[in-house]
Design a protein around this nucleic acid. Structure first.
Lengths: 116, 116
DNA sequence: TCAACCTCTCAACTAATATTGATATATTGA
DNA sequence: TCAATATATCAATATTAGTTGAGAGGTTGA
């Protein structure tokens, strides 16, 4: 069920600590970040962090790999594009002008000079 | 706080009934749908429907207007583009190829011939 | 192998959220 | 104004989720 996956993803993103983790990892890019660095960046205790990282991983939004004694987490980019697609599917009924602003939004998100 | 708005939006989208309402209204376009029609389409009792419609309205994802004895609900498209922007901000650190698939996803969402 | 380090798991507590059924409000047409 | 229709509100209950602190696994370098 694709709906189930979407619900799990949105639920994962609806919590402050987890949303911050996700945005941090999206910004971090493919190299990802170690759990400890994430916890330090967002200010979360280890057990809380671990709980939320596990939650995000189960939701399919992030992935982990071990590197020595560190565990590196990365954002799964296709999960986000899939989520957006699911949400906006059939949004314009053949009239792209209806959802054009939504599409345009993403181009701006990719422009590092635009912060608004 | 923009983060608060995003959290409210994701929380609103993380519930089955509400996610269905939102997708229905996104597909319905600017004309929107009456509460009763929404309830019939997704199979929800009036009180449940009303609860979730109010929730979505407070989250800033849908708007309502009265038309006779009907109340018409519509999706607020800019709210969704704003949400996507917030999530993906600074996603590619100057390397657009990292998040290009995410951007591409939206173009497909607008193509009514693509259902995958 | 030992000590230091990084991360995860567990259980108890607290708080937030969804559902239900009954009732209330607003609008329309006769 | 009355009855029918459309929708919202309320209170009680059931369910789900987040936080905390303590402790347990793996991993590394000496």
């Amino acid at each position: 069920m694709e709906e189930e996956r979407a619900l799990a993803a949105f639920a994962a993103l609806s919590q402050e600590t987890r949303l911050r983790i996700v945005r941090l990892l999206i910004q971090a890019g493919p190299e990802g970040m170690a759990a400890g660095a994430i916890g330090e960046a967002i200010g979360a205790s280890t057990s809380r962090l671990s709980f939320h990282l596990t939650h995000l991983e189960h939701a399919g939004l992030i992935a982990s790999r071990r590197d020595g004694r560190f565990i590196i987490y990365t954002a799964i980019y296709p999960a986000f594009s899939g989520l957006i697609r699911f949400l906006m599917r059939d949004c314009c009924q053949g009239h792209p002008e209806i959802c054009a602003p939504v599409v345009a939004a993403l181009d701006c998100a990719c422009d590092p000079t635009e912060k608004a």
